[in-house]
Amino acid sequence: MSQHEVTQTLDVKGLSCPMPVVKTRGAVDDLSAGEVLKVVSTDSGSMSDLKGWADSTDGVSMLDQEETEESDDTLFVHYIQKE
């Protein structure tokens, strides 16, 4: 498990492209500088999409990404920091 101090968690389970990125943008806008957003998705495409979004968007950085199992679902978890 990640040891990042999470300020807020965004649950986008069951949603597919483009909603994980779009909802992450909205959630990041509500954070203050330095705070960390944890995004939990079931969309395997979110691994590449959220990394790409964070890398080319000013003011955010992707701290960590991990895959975990929850009952029958594979979860894709992202830790994004607002700079």
């Binding site: 492209c17 483009p18 979004w53 080319s56």
Partner: peptide, 11 residues
């Protein structure tokens, strides 16, 4: 619409 909303998320 998918490209437009995603691009807006990029700022």
């Amino acid at each position: 619409l998918i490209l437009a909303s995603t691009a807006a998320a990029f700022g």
